[in-house]
Amino acid sequence: MGSGSLDAWRREFFSAFDSPGAKASLEPAQHLVHGAVAFARGLGFEPHEEFAQAVEYLGEPTTTCCPWDSGPLVLGCVRVAAGR
């Protein structure tokens, strides 16, 4: 998808809402999307085959913790994923 196509898609998508959407920096968007994919995979779901195309825009997930991730929150997520 070229940048013009992405802009057209964005306008069409947000036309269903009262506002045009809010801009977000890349890091929180990466955290949200890749976190959702990891959560879904933990439940046995794989992303849609076109997700690989979205990664071209989002980039690969990083292994560093985000500033808002606390130690107990991360540990809790690991325990849930491990089934403990």
Rank of each mutant, 00 (worst) to 15 (best):
E27I: 02
V37L: 10
T62W: 06
A82G: 04
G76I: 03
G35D: 13
G4C: 04
Y57G: 01
A38C: 07
H48Y: 04
L43Y: 04
F45Q: 10
A16N: 11
R11V: 04
C65P: 00
G21T: 09
C77P: 00
A24Y: 04
F14V: 05
T64F: 05
V80E: 15
E27A: 13
P67Q: 13
E27F: 03
W68H: 14
V78G: 03
A38E: 12
S19Q: 11
V74L: 12
A40F: 10
G71D: 11
P20I: 09
P28S: 10
A36L: 15
A16M: 00
G35V: 03
G76R: 07
W9P: 04
F39P: 00
V78C: 14
P61C: 06
P20N: 09
L58E: 02
G59T: 02
A36C: 09
P47T: 07
G42Y: 01
R84L: 05
S5Q: 05
V80A: 08
A81P: 01
A29Y: 06
G21A: 09
T63C: 00
A8S: 10
A8M: 07
A54C: 12
G44V: 09
L73N: 15
H31K: 14
E50S: 14
V80K: 15
A36V: 12
D18C: 05
L32A: 15
P67E: 10
Q30E: 14
A36R: 15
S15G: 11
F14M: 11
F51S: 06
A38G: 02
Q30W: 01
D7C: 05
V55G: 07
P20G: 12
R41K: 09
V33F: 14
E12I: 05
A81K: 10
H48A: 12
P67Y: 12
A16P: 00
L43E: 09
G83M: 05
S19N: 02
E46I: 00
M1G: 02
C65M: 11
L58W: 00
A82W: 06
V80P: 03
A36E: 15
R84N: 06
R84K: 09
F13R: 06
A29T: 08
L43S: 10
G59L: 09
G76H: 06
G76P: 04
H31A: 15
H48Q: 08
W68T: 00
V78Q: 12
H34L: 08
E12D: 07
T63G: 03
C77S: 15
P28L: 05
R41S: 03
D7L: 02
W68G: 04
E60Q: 08
E50Y: 11
P28R: 11
V78D: 13
E12Q: 05
A22P: 04
G44R: 02
D7V: 00
